[in-house]
Write a protein that binds this DNA or RNA. Structure first.
Length: 159
DNA sequence: GCCAACGTTGGC
DNA sequence: GCCAACGTTGGC
């Protein structure tokens, strides 16, 4: 079991868009960065990932998704009309990959980037390191559990 | 909208 | 292989 963090802009495809899909499942397409692609290919069906909202008013972890498939070729790279077209990729020689994700649950209260940055146990997270721009990145089990505990603690605080 | 950080491209 | 130019990401 591995843990991941996947970024998306909520205006484009947020957690609620995923919730609206049949079976709360959708493919995670459009990754066009080799390092992020390699992480996608390292994913195994059954892994868990945080759904992270980026480039919005309050960036942070919005919920949890389960990786619902192993990686397979991203066919959106083959559509010349599509936003994510890449002429270098073909069905015979796919460059880009995607996985299916299924929404597990939405956090009652998102864990904001500010909260993540201020937590001492998370200072080595890839997310908060200098110049990080990867849209898919791995988490340690410790980082995963720390964020889960932050959600519980925040919930208790508000009650 | 600004800008820092990074990846990619292409000339040499 | 080097590196300048350019495009993109994403927080602020």
């Amino acid at each position: 079991m591995n843990y991941w963090l996947m970024k998306s802009e909520p205006d484009c495809f947020g957690l609620h868009h995923l919730m609206a899909k049949p079976k709360h499942t959708e493919h995670w397409d459009g990754v066009r960065n080799y390092q992020a692609r390699n992480f996608l290919r390292a994913m195994k069906k059954g892994d868990l990932a945080f759904f992270y909202h980026s480039s919005c008013a309050e960036p942070g972890v919005a919920g949890i998704v389960k990786i619902a498939s192993n990686a397979y070729p991203d066919h959106t790279a083959w559509n010349p009309e599509g936003e994510h077209f890449d002429p270098k990729s073909s069905p015979e020689n796919p460059i880009w990959y995607m996985v299916d994700v299924k929404l597990e649950r939405e956090f009652k209260h998102p864990i904001t980037l500010t909260a993540i940055k201020s937590h001492p146990a998370l200072k080595n997270m890839k997310l908060v390191q200098r110049g990080n721009r990867l849209s898919v990145l791995p988490l340690t089990a410790k980082e995963w559990n720390t964020i889960l505990k932050m959600e519980v603690a925040r919930d208790a605080l508000i009650k």
